[in-house]
Amino acid sequence: MGKVIATRLARLVATLLAVTFLTFSMTALLPGDPVNAILGVDAVRDPEVVAKIRADLGLDDPFLVRYVNWLGNAATGDLGQSYITDQEVITTISQRLPVTAQLAFMAIIMALILAIPIGVLGAYKQGKWQDSTTSAGVQVALSIPNFIVGIFLIWLFSVRLGWLPASNWNRISSDGLVENLKTAILPASALAMTQMAIFSRLVRSDMIATLQENYILAARSKGLSDRFILLRHALRPSSLSLMTIIGINFGALLGGTVIIETLFAIPGVGFRLINAINQRDIIVIQGITVFIATAYVVINTIVDLLYAVVDPRIRKG
């Protein structure tokens, strides 16, 4: 076990190095200058002021030097502060990552609650009307963009019914869980839609394969009910690729909920990240990237460990 954790940690460090280096070089390649954002577009360009700012921020150092400097600071836990707002990156992340993580988590859970029964039903009734109906529904869900779903949800639940706020974010810490959920449920549902479609397709196809297995026939010949066989015998062996996708999509959601965050005016990571990119605020981009990449690796490590829980044959290897 100690060895496993050691390799995981080594892998995490390697991933972080690669990811931060790539982001750093990509942002360095971008045209544009943080100084513009700092001074404002209309400001009079006093070359001396510009030069001073650039020197203060270390923007004139060679790219590698800047990266190594950043890395050195990051290694000591100092992710720096925004060029533009002067806010500590770590503060930005601690405020915003929990928001996005909560949205992603809720989206995945809601997607699973729907996807597993739909996928199981589709596999069990393969080719019958239950299957074709749900498959068609899933297809539709897959082809509607998230923000359209979001707009529809806002129209229905905020405008027409007036049940839920159309935008904004209540924090659990200051407003309590119920108020928090009131603002979280609509954006999470909008995100869940696509995930539900992806998950249920996966469950269906893996389940169809599992139901062909000999041990399913054997379980049938024991007189077990179909329901019992589906849930107790077939679901677990059918959930390995589902777990992989959950891990990947959770990571993707952490960095990719920007449209929904914008639509619902949610102070999440994605929102901030786009801002930072526009302003060439490399320090903020780097800091957020580090956290998302770490989350990715951690989540996928958890998924790997869960494989062994789901399939005992993996435990030994």
Binding site: E213, N214, Y215, L217, A218, A219, S221, K222, R232, H233, R236, P237, V310, D311, P312, R313
Partner: peptide, 15 residues
């Protein structure tokens, strides 16, 4: 009851 041909595949590997 039935005993199947291949005991390697007729028991559920995860149960």
């Amino acid at each position: 009851a039935m005993v199947f041909q291949d005991p390697m595949t007729s028991l559920n590997p995860v149960v």
